[in-house]
């Protein structure tokens, strides 16, 4: 009896597992950052650092899109991007370099491991601080970044340590949205975890595998119980 039900049980569990993993597939959603009213291009020739507050609207920030105009002379140069909790520990959540040449059709998309942005009992701030460090540009190279007159809700940009009263960086945050999160917050579990633990479908797959192993174990226990009885 147990043997006859065993095979379909495993297959059924594998189907559940696969479905769970498919449900957990990543679905990044880009949301508007600073509005694009009154946009202008800010020359980065003399700029060493840009700071911009990000009031996160989604729970898992996985990337940013920046508007850039890149001169061919500067495509090999790296733009450093850092993210921190505002008002928290002065350490980077994200610290990476992206070549300016990665800009496609005026948009530089930067992706990183998910950052959980919601303020909770365990996380100190929902507000992030974006820091951009453009490289020193060669003479004649013209690199510009998109800024907007609309400073709500993120506030103005800080250029070389000085608050610009008019402009904000025009960026688009990319949030990770997963259907499974409504039921089971796999994105949150995977946020800032290393290796396979940072891959949200890992968790339903792990639980599914465990359930299969549990069924196998119970089957053996029942067989032994029947034989010894």
């Amino acid at each position: 009896m147990i043997r006859s039900y065993w095979f379909p049980l495993v297959i059924g569990l594998l189907i559940v597992l696969t479905s769970a993993a498919m449900l957990a597939a990543l679905q990044p959603v880009a949301q508007p950052g600073a509005a694009l009213d009154g946009v202008e291009l800010l020359a980065l020739t003399e700029v060493t650092q840009l700071e911009q507050r990000i009031m996160a609207e989604g729970e898992y920030l996985v990337g940013l899109r920046l508007g850039l105009k890149v001169d061919p002379l500067a495509t090999e140069l790296p733009l450093r991007l850092r993210l921190r909790h505002e008002g928290g520990l002065p350490r980077d959540l994200i610290n990476l370099e992206v070549p300016l040449g990665a800009t496609e059709q005026g948009v530089l998309e930067v992706r990183f491991a998910p950052i959980f942005t919601r303020a909770t009992l365990h996380t100190s701030s929902p507000t992030l601080q974006l820091i951009l460090e453009p490289p020193p540009l060669p003479e004649g190279a013209d690199v510009r970044i998109l800024v907007s007159r609309q400073t709500e809700p993120h506030g103005s940009v800080v250029v070389n340590g000085e608050l610009d009263p008019i402009f904000a960086l025009a960026f688009t945050p990319i949030y990770q949205h997963q259907r499974l999160d409504a039921l089971w917050p796999v994105s949150r579990m995977a946020a800032q975890r290393p290796g396979p633990l940072g891959w949200p479908p890992f968790y339903p797959l792990l639980v599914g595998s465990f359930l299969v192993a549990l069924m196998v174990a119970l089957k053996h226990v029942l067989l032994v119980s029947r034989e010894s009885g």
């Binding site: 928290g88 520990l89 009992l121 996380t123 100190s124």
Partner: peptide, 19 residues
């Protein structure tokens, strides 16, 4: 300590002194 902070070990508003 930084990792503990990143993973929400400390209460809101508190962080270790790494200065």
């Amino acid at each position: 300590a930084v990792s503990m902070y990143r993973h929400g070990f400390y209460p809101p508003g508190e962080h270790p002194n790494i200065e």
